[in-house]
């Protein structure tokens, strides 16, 4: 009988164990709300004789699938030393909580060391995508400079070359886009220059016309002056002839 009583006492006695807790919070919460929520939660843990050894906030992450109509979640990881009797209570508390979408409670061995795992795969390709765009912009600038320096006839030759190159060489999409952009720039520049030339020619013609008109007017004035003089002479009474 005594042994049985001892066994019962052992079961009831609260044993401290290491646990790892992962929470997934709602993505709608603001940063201040999250900090407040976590403070309250740690308070709740300490009230129930838990020891929080580690706390790590991962931040927002995209979920692999939809949970409660949310596609994102704020991840938080805890390492706690808690009495075994409290764990079921904690589980219930988290299940009822509205701001916690999912939670995971695992028992850990005592020599467990928490280590971070970064996802570098998703970040690397984005940088690679950004890099060629800058090159394109630089190339465009260089093309503009070339067009400004050189006369109008040369870019037209360039156009023909680029037109020939695109179908023959099986280049990637980006290169094709670049070439097209260059074409556009060249065409625009050429059109502008042509327009300017036309304007200059028109202006010159206008000047010439004006000059001709002025000359004609001058001639007319001279003629009229001569006519008036003649009239005066003729009308005058004192003719020496």
């Amino acid at each position: 009988m005594a042994k049985k009583k001892e066994a019962e006492a052992r079961v009831v006695e609260a044993e401290n164990r290491m646990y790892e807790l992962m929470l997934v919070l709602k993505p709608d919460l603001l940063e201040s709300a999250v900090t407040k929520k976590l403070k309250d939660f740690t308070k709740f843990l300490k009230e129930n004789e838990c020891n929080v050894t580690m706390e790590d906030v991962w931040g927002k992450r995209t979920l692999a699938y939809r949970i409660k109509q949310f596609e994102e979640g704020i991840y938080v990881v805890y390492n706690i030393i808690a009495p075994t009797t409290f764990i079921s209570e904690l589980d219930n508390h988290l299940r009822i909580d509205n701001e916690v979408i999912r939670h995971l409670l695992i028992s850990i061995e005592n020599d467990y060391k928490y280590s971070k795992f970064d996802e570098e795969i998703e970040e690397a390709p984005k940088e690679e995508k950004k890099a060629p765009k800058k090159e394109i912009s630089k190339k465009e600038e260089s093309v503009k400079e070339v067009v400004k320096e050189e006369p109008v006839e040369e870019p037209i030759e360039k156009k023909e070359e680029s037109d020939v190159e695109i179908p023959l060489s099986g280049t990637s999409k980006e290169e094709v886009v670049e070439e097209k952009k260059e074409e556009k720039v060249v065409e625009e520049k050429a059109e502008e220059k042509e327009e300017k030339e036309e304007k200059v020619v028109e202006e010159k013609e206008k000047v010439k016309e004006e000059k001709i008109v002025e000359e004609k007017e001058k001639e007319e004035i001279d003629r009229s002056a001569l006519d008036s003089k003649l009239d005066d002479l003729l009308s005058g009474d004192d003719l020496n002839i």
């Binding site: 992962m22 997934v24 979920l63 692999a64 699938y65 949970i67 979640g73 991840y75 999912r102 995971l104 695992i106």
Partner: peptide
């Protein structure tokens, strides 16, 4: 299976 439950991996 744990990663799936938390939403780190898809089912």
């Amino acid at each position: 299976k744990r990663a799936r439950h938390v939403g780190l991996l898809p089912f």
